[in-house]
Write a protein that binds this DNA or RNA. Structure first.
Ligand code: NAD
Ligand code: NAD
Lengths: 229, 229
DNA sequence: TAACGCTTGTGAGCGTAATCACAAACCGAA
DNA sequence: TTCGGTTTGTGATTACGCTCACAAGCGTTA
């Protein structure tokens, strides 16, 4: 019954507002916040904050601002964080272990409830308070635990195969850490976290500014030479 | 001297094409590729591939496609990957360790050359073939090694402080893993990798489709009841 | 109640990105 | 050389997102 659908760009920012609001509520004991203040905390434009929040409804008070607790509740509800989301990690290597032991997920409704691998020397081991199970048990465990999110932390070559198995097991949301493109049916959402891509983007922009600096330098030299000659 | 600047969205996709091309060249021994094929491998639209590549120049041959090696070289050059980018990690906990030991970075010009922490019990320890140094040595080490990329893997409360120190040391590119907004001067680029945000976005879309399914179900029941009553 | 300062909510304008659709260009065959 | 099949490169169009700017609405004060 919503007036307008929430744009993708807005969905991506709601978690940032959520974090800023939690900080305001818990650490600073603020009960009220203006779009200006929230914008500063989230590192975005104030008009953008207001427009983003307006998609959720008219929850602010003109001349006053937003009630922190109420806004927290509304964003939490909108993001579906009032319920618990059991997640499973596949691939318990370096990264999978760090993720499995990470305490930060549980803070907001995400719980890692099962971890999988195919390496016999890893299976049965305890990581982050859980026993590593064989990938063959995936479907069964997912059904039993109502797992809704699958996290892929295998080498890239295994990523598509693992994604297929997650889909087959009924998982509709996948977070992929492997540097590989994975294809899934349209009713499944995949998001990727790719460090190499991020580094390469940083490289591009840094190289560009370096190139500009070098060109300026060359220009300066040329001018000086010309002046002197 | 480029005809047009490369759009941000394109820069974000060049690394994906790069990976697909490397796969074609190394694993499959292909010397030529069409925009259709490349689009399939990268999981995007073919017209988008052609437009993206056209920002680099006219490197394709009509009726034939693109020469894999040549395209590889051009993208590599454009992304600034012909040179090495020494990187430093700050915060050697769970995640920092996984990153420091990760072999995947070096494959493309990124080398972790120094790792830092402030915890005395961690400093001096060897991780990924490097000795953990105290953050106080940052400026000195960055100058010495020509570090160009800083990676933040500390708790969120320390992130801004660490970013400030990286900036002060002359680092112009930062990759931030801490769930916190960090502010830097305009000549510094920050990119963030935030797992919680990704999970929350997945939660949003999954919750939405569940809500739709529930609404359909309720509707169906209502109709049935109506029909029966 | 009226006047004032403050902040929201949103229409309008602008810029960026995605997609479409097709002329131009190339290759190989005849 | 011509023709047909193929694929690029790009103008045109549409969709999306960001920012501006301001009327509308609220609380406070007198
Ligand atoms: N470690 C990092 O810091 C880091 C950084 C960026 C990206 N990544 C990516 O994350 C992924 C995991 O990295 P890692 O360093 O943990 O690698 P890793 O080699 O340490 O661990 C991979 C694990 O996946 C398991 N595995 C292999 N095939 C499997 C399959 N078909 N099903 C289930 N499990 C399987 C292996 O047994 C192993 O335990 C890789 O794709 C890597 O490129 C890692
Ligand atoms: N572990 C994960 O899988 C994971 C997942 C998502 C996000 N993160 C985020 O990544 C960051 C690191 O996570 P972690 O699990 O490795 O945490 P951790 O607590 O294991 O490690 C943090 C490290 O940072 C060091 N540190 C603290 N303050 C510092 C400072 N001012 N300067 C330098 N070093 C400092 C600590 O001594 C510690 O070694 C956190 O912000 C966390 O939220 C981690």
């Amino acid at each position: 019954m919503r007036r307008r659908p929430i744009p993708e760009a807005t969905v991506g920012r709601l978690p940032i507002y959520l974090r800023a609001l939690l900080d305001l509520a818990e650490s600073r004991g603020e009960t009220n916040v203006s779009s200006d203040e929230l914008a500063r905390l989230a590192g975005v434009n104030a008009a953008k904050v207001r427009k983003d929040l307006s998609y959720l409804g008219s929850y602010g008070t003109r001349g006053v601002g937003y009630d922190v607790e109420y806004l927290l509740y509304q964003i939490t509800r909108e993001l579906g964080l009032t319920q618990d989301w059991p997640a499973a990690i596949v691939g318990i290597g370096n990264l999978g272990r760090a993720l499995a032991s990470y305490k930060g997920f549980s803070e907001r409704g995400f719980r890692i409830t099962a971890i999988f691998d195919v390496d016999e020397s890893v299976i049965g081991e305890e990581v982050g308070g859980m026993i590593v199970r064989h990938l063959d048990e995936l479907k069964e465990v997912v059904a039993e635990m109502g797992t809704s999110i699958g996290i892929i932390a295998t080498p890239p070559l295994a990523a598509q195969e693992v994604a297929d198995k997650l889909v087959d097991a009924g998982v509709k949301s996948i977070l992929n850490f492997a540097p590989a493109v994975v294809n899934v049916p349209p009713d499944v959402t995949v998001r990727k976290v790719d460090l190499s891509i991020e580094l390469q983007i940083l490289s591009f922009y840094q190289q560009r500014t370096q190139a500009i600096a070098t060109a300026r330098e060359a220009n300066r030299r040329l001018r000086n030479q010309h002046g002197a000659g």
